[in-house]
Design a protein around this nucleic acid. Structure first.
Lengths: 142, 142
DNA sequence: TATTGTTATACTCTATAACTATA
DNA sequence: TATAGTTATAGAGTATAACAATA
């Protein structure tokens, strides 16, 4: 190939975000392959690790997901018995979600694999630069 | 809501990339709404602006896309007469893609809208920080 | 009336494989 | 036999709207 990717593309933020995100997804999948878990399922388990009880509407707000997406997400986690859901006695419209013991075990398996994936992505950066990147990205979110 | 998004999620690189990318897509779409163009279509036009002629296989390699995806992408641009494709006389298996005059005009419309979207995303960062972010992300790509 | 969650539907992306035409 | 491109298909992911139960 006689040409080179022009800077007009290589420095486009949309391109950089799309490609790094794509690469992160592939690495996460490669490292967690035998666990067959999605990044979103992992994030849900982390949220429930930090908070013993959450309503589905809380998860939707936190993870910035549609409530229908949360329903499917929770369905998939309940099928694997990693979480359980029950009616909120205080508001019988709502469902309360909790991590099960099996979910805690699963999380212990997933976490090191997920961290290894992130470390592989971040290999070109030293520790300071990794922290800078996280801090800069975090400031772009509401 | 009584809870707060835990740092275990907020600082997860996969979460940060997914959310900033999602936000970038929404802002791009909002700013280019009346032009109805995708970021990938925009990147293709930029590639052709920098190189008068490209084969579809070049585009696939540059943009890290499957060749089937490139076929659909080029189809959509040809329908709008922004690009034209013809057989490569030197290798009649290949298609050579070129920007048309209409494509050049379209690019002139799209570019400021795309840049405005990026600037809105990057509002929380000053100029130095924006450059740092681009540089750090670029180093994560092969 | 508004909110929580579920279901159905559809639409976009993406991945795969089968196909053609050329090399 | 390998490569460039096309087509068909199916699988995720996501968005929308209609619905039931409850507030």
């Amino acid at each position: 190939m006689a040409h080179v990717l022009p800077d007009s593309i290589r420095c486009r933020l949309g391109y950089l975000l799309a490609k790094t995100h794509q690469r992160q997804l592939k690495l996460f999948e490669a490292h967690t392959h035998d666990l067959s878990v999605s990044g979103r399922q992992y994030a849900t388990l982390l949220a429930l690790e930090a908070n013993a009880e959450l309503r589905q509407s809380d998860l939707a707000e936190w993870l910035d997901l549609d409530r229908t997406t949360v329903t499917y997400l929770i369905d998939s986690l309940e099928e694997r018995a990693w979480i359980e859901r029950q009616r909120d006695p205080a508001d019988r419209r709502a469902h309360i979600v909790r991590l099960t013991d099996a979910g805690t075990v699963a999380l212990a398996d997933i976490r090191p694999a997920a961290q290894a994936a992130t470390q592989e992505l971040l290999t070109p950066l030293d520790d300071d630069e990794q922290a800078q990147l996280r801090a800069l990205l975090a400031r772009l979110l509401p």
